[in-house]
């Protein structure tokens, strides 16, 4: 019994790490630009495919592949910001319009990936082979790496936004664009940095996920939908609340799978989310918006 519970908690931790990486990227873009990026999951997928091409098809090794994937996701993210988000700054309906343009970007990326890489399932080798035992629950070393990496990355982003000048300028822009530009912050550069950083995060997550799950053109939509649940629970406003919510959702999901089975879990999660929203419209951890 205890063994099952520990195994469940550990698999919840793996899910939570994945969701935390996804959702924190969404949160960075949201707090800086006020844009919800629907193509976030697709960026993950682009990176996984590029990583596969570089490391498997070209044979340059996995680390090079992951780096190339992450960079290409960042690049695509910056292009999306420039072409699909920037023209609508200041528009009264910017929020709605950018939801639509990033949704269109998602379709374009997914269909392009299908045309370029085909429908055959692909998978990356693992970064570290072997398995690791945590309190008697066994997971692959690669998944353990994801679990270890997630908090480090989250802390790095947090420190970046709190301490570094560039990071602080992102927050300043998020709080008040006019004042930020008055004190000499390059607002459009801050937007590009926020989008690029968020996309790179999605890219790294995608490249790492490519060793655990199959790489398909639609591999990003399930994590994106889960990340949406996370931000509804945690609110989009603060990185800490978003990351916290990601782990809570990951563990709840693992427990629900144990308790209700694989089929009912997504339904229960969505139902839980809607109930939460009725009583806490800004999320459980989200105090203010």
């Amino acid at each position: 019994m205890i063994d099952t519970l520990i195994a469940t908690l550990v698999s919840g931790l793996v899910l939570g790490s994945l969701y935390a990486l996804m959702a924190s990227g969404l949160s960075v873009v949201w707090t800086t630009l006020g844009v919800f990026n629907f193509s976030h999951g697709a960026l993950m997928m682009v990176s996984a495919f590029v990583a596969w091409t570089v490391s498997e098809a070209l044979g340059l090794g996995l680390l090079v592949g992951i780096a190339a994937g992450t960079l290409s996701a960042a690049l695509v993210g910056i292009i999306i910001e420039r072409l699909l988000v920037r023209p609508f700054y200041g528009d009264r309906n910017m929020l709605l319009i950018t939801v639509m343009t990033t949704l269109a970007a998602m379709i374009i990326l997914e269909k392009s990936a299908l045309i370029i890489w085909g429908a055959r399932l692909k998978q990356l080798p693992r970064l570290i082979e072997g398995e690791i035992s945590i309190f008697g629950a066994t997971i692959s070393a690669h998944e353990a790496l994801l679990v270890a990496l997630a908090p480090l990355l989250l802390i790095a982003i947090w420190q970046f936004t709190v301490r570094s000048t560039v990071g602080r300028s992102l927050r300043a822009v998020g709080q008040n664009q006019e004042s930020a530009s008055l004190i000499g912050i390059d607002v459009s550069k801050a937007f590009a940095i926020a989008f690029g950083l968020s996309a790179a995060l999605a890219g790294l997550t995608g490249a790492l996920l490519g060793s655990i799950r199959f790489i398909t053109p639609t591999m990003g939509s399930e994590p994106l939908v889960k990340a949406m649940i996370v931000v509804i629970f945690g609110g989009l406003g603060s990185l800490g609340a978003t990351a916290g919510a990601a782990y809570v959702i990951g563990i709840i999901e693992a427990l629900l799978i144990l308790w209700l089975g694989l089929y009912w879990t997504p339904f229960a999660l969505f139902l839980l989310m809607i109930v939460v929203l009725v009583f806490r419209p800004n999320g459980i951890f989200g105090g203010r918006e």
Partner: peptide, 19 residues
């Protein structure tokens, strides 16, 4: 609800129905 949360919830509602 307001703003982006309306998008997220209505979208999630569709996912709920699909699940």
């Amino acid at each position: 609800l307001k703003g982006i949360y309306v998008v997220l919830v209505t979208f999630a509602f569709g996912q709920l129905a699909m699940q």
